[in-house]
């Protein structure tokens, strides 16, 4: 069931990461956190989540590099990625989608909308 799905959140901003994690736990998901690009890549492999919620601004490897690495690795190439970022420029959104992100949500966001988008991605990737 989608409600049991494991989700990895990679966000360099601890309060934001905590809030999004709490929101998804409240939504019934199993949530894991990564504070930087490198640990996001490691956890994406070791935890095999159903979805990665990824910020673009990350310490070390940025979100674009993380998407690139995940999509070029056969073990993680099918992992759906939802970008959740404060970067709202058209070129950033297009770049993330072109690299293979499933969806792009700009901060600040509506919690209900984020949950709906996550639900849809998980349904599609089932």
């Amino acid at each position: 069931m989608a409600e049991q799905a494991r989700i990895l959140i990679a966000d360099g901003d601890a309060p934001v990461r905590r809030f999004v994690a709490a929101l998804l736990v409240h939504g019934g998901y199993e949530v894991h956190e990564a504070a930087d690009g490198e640990s996001a890549l490691q956890k994406a492999v070791s935890l095999a989540p159903r979805l990665l919620v990824l910020d673009i601004v990350l310490p070390g490897k940025d979100g674009f590099e993380v998407i690139n690495s995940l999509k070029s690795n056969p073990a993680t190439s099918r992992l759906p990625i939802l970008v959740l970022s404060v970067k709202d420029r058209e070129e950033d959104v297009v770049k993330a989608l072109d690299l293979g992100a499933e969806d792009y949500v700009i901060k600040p966001f509506s919690p209900r909308e984020l949950q709906a988008r996550i639900r849809k991605i998980l349904e599609r990737s089932r």
Binding site: D13, P15, F19, K107, P108, S110
Partner: peptide, 15 residues
């Protein structure tokens, strides 16, 4: 504290 975390990222009616 939790509301301050929410205040940074949510918008609309929730905000």
């Amino acid at each position: 504290e939790f509301l301050l975390e929410a205040a940074r990222v949510v918008k609309g009616e929730t905000r």
